[in-house]
Amino acid sequence: MTTTRLAPSTAATAPARRKRPNRAVSARHATRWWVPWAFAAPGMILFIVVVGYPLLRSLQISFYQWAVLPTDASTFVGFDNYTRALGDAEFWTSMANAGIYLILTVPLTLILGLFFAVLLNAKMPARTVFRVLFYIPVVTSWVVVSLLFKFLFVTDGGAVNWAITDLLPLTSEPVPWLEQRGTGLVAVAALGIWKSLGWCLVVFLAALGGVGEEQYEAASLDGANAWQQFLNVTLPGIRGTFLFVLVLQVIGAFNVFASVLLMTNGGPAGSTEVPLTYMYKQAFSFLDFGYASAMSFILAIIIVVISILQFKFFREKN
């Protein structure tokens, strides 16, 4: 886990801060050993009790054929749940679907989020109103917008099919959006991008505020045009934030849930299932909590590996 550190961000005073300053501070003015612990304690204790302990418990459950009823004995099955998941074609379909969803959503969300953040970072009329409008999808309930999108993508009489058959005659046949794998994932991804773009935008806006004006001025004096300034000043200036957003969006893509559950329910024939809908069914429909827990740890391992790769990749490029 040592690699899960944020890459050094090259913010305002970039050249002077190649090395992390924290060691310098704490070493030269030796604070007592318990000071960092005192700062970290409230949060860590709360976290360990409410998340850490259930996490450990869930890990334990993953090694059992777990009996839902506490008075019934659970059977220890070792790694059976894990080997079962590794050989379960439906689980891997769900993982592949999460991968497809990730590829469909994350790059577009990040690019569009950054694009509009840059546009909205500068003064323009009604800027606050626009910022609010972009944020509105983030704050509307997942359940409600998932159902809304389901209605938009309904095959007979849905707004999307109306638009592509009647409004702009791209096709004569209505597309069965939610009744096949590819288009189903596209529809879910459309909702995903719409819903999380505003979130990226807010984080990027906060980071763009931290990019020093003097750097733009310097670049401007060097004759850099807008695009060059974006590449040479803006992007390096928000590198840390970009990584933060990227990592969280990737985690979010693997955790896509409510939209799939409500729009396709993983169908038809399990072809649009994603890891969380599959786990949810195993746990709460089929009461197989051991299996669901094992799958969640396999998923977590995959996410950890991908996150580490992202940290590595971005640090090396720095």
Binding site: I48, G52, Y53, L56, Q60, Y64, T71, D72, S74
Partner: peptide, 27 residues
Amino acid sequence: SLPAVAGVVTVLITLSACGTGGVDGSG
């Protein structure tokens, strides 16, 4: 700091060990 962490971990493991059958339930 080591004993403190070890203590927390021990408590958690003990807590989780007592959970596979035997907790009072409605059944």
